[in-house]
């Protein structure tokens, strides 16, 4: 007999757990991934150069809003929207509540001691996720248009490595946006009886369609996050002359 202790501890100490697996791996690498993206995207937004090459435009600067009255990088005029969309996204909420706020860092692991209020008071702004969704849907169109434009070069139509990267960027961001829980709610999730309302069948089909992307929302969240940063990096390096854009066609 050993290890005498009390159970039903009303205030488990921070990170207290009986778990023996490597529960810290997921929050650790999630924190690294999120912080790396935030640091890189902030740096890239402050650069205010090397965001364009021929028909390629970095997604951090799309749509390109250059005004005389705005003395800062044009990236700051648009980045608040995708940042707000991801900040209020239900998946990212799980990711940063676990990995950055440690409430809790993993299941059955003691959370950070605090006066816990949940998503109330200041965090009520999370409920505005649907408004960021509306803007994100517009961004899907803008980035798809930029991807379309990337097929044009000085000597006519063509396909470069950057074209493929920008097209995939639009696809990944659209897949992430189409799996949004707010979109799922708005297209049909708020209906209790599809056979009782106007356009019920269409709303049911739309809800089922969004479910396809929603089931892998976390995967699309990470793929699109990584790829949007990679797209900016690729265009930046080509623009700086460090690498050459290879023409496929």
């Amino acid at each position: 007999m050993q290890n005498s202790f009390q159970i039903e501890n009303p205030n488990p100490s921070f990170l207290e757990t009986s778990r023996r697996d490597f529960w810290w791996i997921e929050p650790f690498f999630t924190a690294i991934g999120l912080l790396a993206f935030v640091i890189y995207s902030t740096w890239a937004a402050f650069q205010n150069e090397h965001y364009q090459w021929e028909s390629y435009l970095s997604p951090f600067y799309a749509p390109l809003l250059e005004y005389d009255w705005w003395p800062f990088s044009p990236a700051f005029l648009i980045l608040w929207a995708p940042a707000g969309f991801r900040l209020t996204c239900y998946y990212y909420r799980k990711a940063y509540y676990r990995s950055l706020f440690l409430t809790p860092s993993a299941c059955a692991v003691g959370g950070r001691p605090q006066n816990y209020r949940g998503e109330r008071f200041l965090l009520l702004f999370q409920n505005l996720h649907r408004y960021f969704l509306y803007i994100a849907l517009v961004f899907c169109v803008i980035l798809s248009y930029d991807a379309y434009i990337s097929f044009t070069f000085k000597d006519g139509l063509g396909i470069g490595v950057g074209t493929v990267i920008m097209t995939l960027n639009a696809v990944f961001l659209t897949a992430f946006t189409f799996g949004c829980n707010s979109l799922r709610h708005l297209v049909g999730g708020n209906v209790d009886c599809y056979s009782c309302v106007n356009f019920g069948h269409q709303r049911y089909q739309a809800w089922k369609f969004v479910n396809i992307f929603n089931m892998n929302h976390m995967m699309w969240a990470w793929i699109s996050l990584f790829w949007v940063g990679f797209t900016d990096l690729y265009i930046r390096l080509v623009s700086m002359g460090i690498i050459t854009d290879y023409r496929i066609l």
Binding site: Y90, R93, K94, Y97, T103, P104, C107, R117, G118, E119
Partner: peptide, 24 residues
């Protein structure tokens, strides 16, 4: 019922033996 206290960390879904997607 205080649904605002839930911060979507999905531990309920992780432990459900019936694989109910409780959070989603």
């Amino acid at each position: 019922f205080g649904i605002g206290y839930c911060n979507i960390t999905k531990c309920c879904t992780e432990v459900c033996p019936e694989d109910i997607a409780i959070t989603d």
